[in-house]
């Protein structure tokens, strides 16, 4: 079975929002830094004053790879699949798969939008990317 993210206290709000198909990110109240992934402290000024914001869900492909060798049997049926880093317009970066019929045409710089993939029996949802025009 593909891994289902197990939320912890740092990331609970992120995954609860994802389950409702909303993409959240954190901004530091101390120095306005946008964090790449949720945590309990700002990695720039080390403040614990972090606020949740909702992303527009729009971004661009920074880099990608078409994966032909799966890490575990759970991903074997999906090869070849696209692994990418996406920079969202608000300035945070996430790893995602690019999904959709034209995913294998992915190029650096392509605009993408967030979509949500249901995973597991509990209807957990994983933010993913889809190319846009």
């Amino acid at each position: 079975m593909k891994p289902i993210p197990a939320a912890n206290a740092d990331t609970q709000a992120y995954w609860e929002a994802a389950a409702k198909e909303r993409l959240l990110y954190q901004v530091c109240g101390g120095c306005s830094h946008t964090l790449s992934y949720p945590r309990g402290v700002c990695p720039r000024c080390h403040s614990g004053d972090l606020a949740w914001r909702e992303s527009s869900g729009r971004g661009r492909i920074v880099t990608f790879s078409i994966v032909h060798r799966a890490p575990t049997p759970a991903f074997k049926a999906d090869v070849p699949y696209v692994l990418a880093l996406v920079d969202f317009d608000e300035g945070f970066r996430l790893m995602m798969n690019v999904l959709g019929d034209d995913a294998l045409d992915t190029k650096i710089g392509d605009p993408v939008e967030v979509i949500f993939e249901a995973r597991g029996e509990a209807q957990d949802k994983l933010p993913q990317a889809r190319r846009t025009k």
């Binding site: 993210p5 912890n8 890490p71 999906d78």
Partner: peptide, 8 residues
């Protein structure tokens, strides 16, 4: 474990 492994 939460932000990379689920993406294969």
């Amino acid at each position: 474990p939460q932000f990379e492994q689920p993406y294969g």
